[in-house]
Nucleic acid binder design. Sequence first.
DNA 1: GTGAAAGCGCTAACAG
DNA 2: CTGTTAGCGCTTTCAC
Lengths: 335, 335
Amino acid sequence: MATIRDVAKLAGVSVATVSRVINKSGYVNKETEQSVQQAIKMLNYEPNKVARGLASKKTETIALIMPDISNPFFAELARAVEDVARTYGYTVLICNSDNESDKEQTYINVLKKRYVDGILFATHSLQAADISAMNDAGIPLVILDRAPAEASCYVVRSKNYEGAKLAVRHLLDAGCKKIAHIYGPQDTATGKERMLGYEDSVRHFDWFSPSLMVPGHFRINGGMDAVEELMARHPDVDGIFAGNDLMALGAMKKLKQMGLSVPDQVALCGFDGIELTVITEPELTTIAQPIYDIGALSTRLLVKKIEGVAVDNQIYEFDVELIARGSSRKDMKTP
Amino acid sequence: MATIRDVAKLAGVSVATVSRVINKSGYVNKETEQSVQQAIKMLNYEPNKVARGLASKKTETIALIMPDISNPFFAELARAVEDVARTYGYTVLICNSDNESDKEQTYINVLKKRYVDGILFATHSLQAADISAMNDAGIPLVILDRAPAEASCYVVRSKNYEGAKLAVRHLLDAGCKKIAHIYGPQDTATGKERMLGYEDSVRHFDWFSPSLMVPGHFRINGGMDAVEELMARHPDVDGIFAGNDLMALGAMKKLKQMGLSVPDQVALCGFDGIELTVITEPELTTIAQPIYDIGALSTRLLVKKIEGVAVDNQIYEFDVELIARGSSRKDMKTP
DNA sequence: GTGAAAGCGCTAACAG
DNA sequence: CTGTTAGCGCTTTCAC
């Protein structure tokens, strides 16, 4: 591989000039630039990223720290992140935190030693203290799914609260008389806000009881277990709003196993809009977030921040959308 | 951040000695080592990976090039890769090729400029020429799902042919009288070998016809379309072996939409064993590969190769396992 | 406009 | 066993 020195020699200039040409920094005479470009072409020269990283402390690398890439939500997100990062010439490192903050700390530490340019956090174990520590360390970050207030950095999120209300209203419209909620971890903004949206929508009904809310840990199995407990407590539940699609998928499965038909006996609505919501029969009604767009915007923001481009808001909030499908079409069956 | 020079100064030794200590290379007196360690602790020193990368041309980074991380199979694989890589102190870069060889070439080029230590290929657009080019360039690689013969480097794969035979036999045992196959891309070893396994299992039956084989492109939609075409051609098909789980999931969906019951009217078997095979009702019967183990072993092999440790075989072939579930339990319903 | 030179932080001969 | 020194390939003052 040719080095900058080879190019300089061939073009009959100094390495500084070559550097100026490839970085478009500083003035350089049209003609000399031409000959440098020619030399570059001749030698098929491409700057070494590692050397550049050491000298400039910029590696054109970003890291995506998330709980688990094998969770379809994060896999879809990661795809968007990588797509956008690539268009900017950035490369992406993946980190699975399992939401354990020590793992996360270890990653952060490693990433610093690697001169990673910025970090995209899609995990909730990150503490406010960590955020300001990163800020102090001067390492740009963008955080997903934080509460609006917590922002001392860019936050990209969806309207969880409104989405939850949308879900409940939809189930009511579909004719549900008693709606339960399977909730996600309450130390996450998503879990908390979606639950609050549910509560605020139903607390005034006389059928409401706090025991209609059951945890499901955002996982398929969690959804299954939750349904079991729920139907034991309240056999008359005829609608369930799950805090994410995986739990809703688990719920659907368990309901069918219990011989309860979806949506006729129990209508179901999830949250997120992952692609797999269409593989069940009936398909899963869900409150969809624009997952790809979220990943894409987050990455774009991160890159802007890294490159020192000013961006207006600190918080970007996406609208969510009800996608009504078979799992909640009670109305169509009861004319 | 402290540098190696700071440590050397504090410990009263040269940077070379510090380097020896942190790399455990060469001899160094117990006592000096102690004081170096102490200085390291005092300063909270951690070697800078970028500088080390430039000097040694080893970055402790590997890349995973695959078609698409949002495909659950690859997401599960990526999780395993990252887990194992981390235990060795390696970091993983993700690359989505969409099986387009120009994207792949671009990645390879970028990865070289970044001194990536090794590459794990889980994509089939890589040509034999590329493989030897990489070999010549001295960059270690491990390839997934190649044919045994193609190996001029480490190959990790599963018994696709045998698995396909297993699938067909299982469907026959379940009472199927006419079994179709939805096949994956024929430029992939997996697609090809699984189809061959199917053909060799059924070609001697008088009901067999090549029109029982329909392409599904390894995708959900492909599986759906395939079923539509298949049932139009052969309404009496009562068993389908799909070349992967996503197509099988699509097939199940379409069958239900067409009012055909699974498994009673059509039994179904997929291939891969992704986690999502359990979310449908009935659950999907599948020929499971040990996806996590495959990713884990591949990574381990790659790291060994990078670190110059001798490993015996060039080809590692995993057994597959029939997981018989609801989608093929015809027998249980017809006593 | 351009070049010389001093690093970035670490590794790896080569002496001693 | 340990220190000196010359890079790795590039960026970036600072003169000219």
